[in-house]
């Protein structure tokens, strides 16, 4: 199966927000970062993938299977981590082990124990006494302790310190070593995504702005800096968005459309996201 996750023309309408014909796919063996502002539709998209909410239009294929017909058996192979821990707070990791053993056919107790040790999670402390980082690590340990082929992560590293984030990213990188494993991760912490992702999908106000390989993105775009008077000479088709500062103009541009001698710096994923957002506000940021 070539695609771990595929969304085709997926829409969902609420009174004051809509997801509009979302299309993207995640090739097997890769990591895709899902970025967007708060309220852009990231969590809604993930809930649609897991059939937690009903879509109004389109199809979703998880590990090659339609998520409406066969989801229960597919879920044996999905590991999900969401921003809040949903484990009942009076339970301990040992309780969780026994509960999940009774839910997942492929639950691997030894694996769970070894992740608990690796991530320094106590087995017999109630979850309400955990720090935020520990709760997240527990969710991750659970997601990895059955036959997961696809990890779906909704802002898993929010609010965690850099040391724990690094620990967690290492665990993800270890997971992806197996070519049949894939990861779909939404996050605000773009530096984390830049470290590990192969693909980046950017959602803005319910629509996908782009879904491309990270390397392509970094090659295609650049941040052009010039004095204000020189800016009008630039082909406006080459400019995604720009802003003025005290030195002149800073603009996100398509490198191959720029003629002439300009200073073009590397554009990071965060730059690309910010300038695209500026563009939707009318090309200028104050």
């Amino acid at each position: 199966m070539s695609e771990a996750l595929k969304l085709v023309n997926v829409s969902k309408h609420y009174r004051d927000f809509s997801l509009n014909r979302i299309n993207f796919s995640l090739p097997t063996g890769c990591i895709m970062g899902f970025i967007g502002e708060n309220g852009a539709g990231k969590t809604t998209t993930i809930k649609l993938i897991l059939d937690l909410i009903k879509r109004d239009e389109g199809s979703i294929f998880v590990l090659g299977r339609d998520n409406l017909t066969d989801l229960k058996s597919v879920k044996e192979n999905i590991g999900v981590v969401m921003e809040d821990s949903f484990f009942p707070e009076n339970l301990t990791a040992a309780n969780i082990n026994r509960i999940l053993k009774g839910i997942y056919r492929t639950w691997n107790e030894k694996s769970f124990d070894s992740y608990l040790k690796q991530l320094s999670i106590p087995a017999n402390k109630p979850i309400k006494e955990y720090s935020k980082g520990m709760k997240m690590k527990l969710s991750i340990a659970a997601a990895l302790s059955h036959d997961s082929k696809l990890l779906i992560l909704d802002e898993p590293t929010n609010g965690l310190d850099p040391v724990i984030r690094d620990e967690i990213l290492d665990v993800f990188l270890e997971f992806i070593q197996d070519e049949s494993h894939s990861i779909f991760i939404s996050s605000h912490i773009i530096s984390d995504l830049e470290k590990i992702c192969d693909y980046i999908t950017f959602i803005h106000k319910g629509s996908i702005i782009f879904s491309e390989s990270k390397d392509d993105l970094l090659e295609k775009y650049g941040v052009l800096k010039c004095p204000e008077k020189d800016f009008s000479g630039i082909d406006s088709d080459a400019v995604i968005g720009y802003r003025k500062n005290s030195f002149g103009i800073e603009a996100l541009v398509l490198r191959n459309r720029i003629r002439g001698n300009f200073v073009i710096d590397r554009a990071g994923i965060e730059d690309i996201m910010l300038f695209y957002t500026v563009r939707s506000k009318g090309k200028q940021m104050s």
Binding site: L50, D51, L52, K72, V80, M82, F86, I103, Y104, R105
Partner: peptide, 18 residues
């Protein structure tokens, strides 16, 4: 009530549970 408090359902439905 416990389930509601910990929003267990949202998590549980991501597992092989119908």
């Amino acid at each position: 009530a416990y389930d509601e408090k910990s929003k267990w359902d949202r998590y549980a439905l991501a597992m092989p549970v119908s």
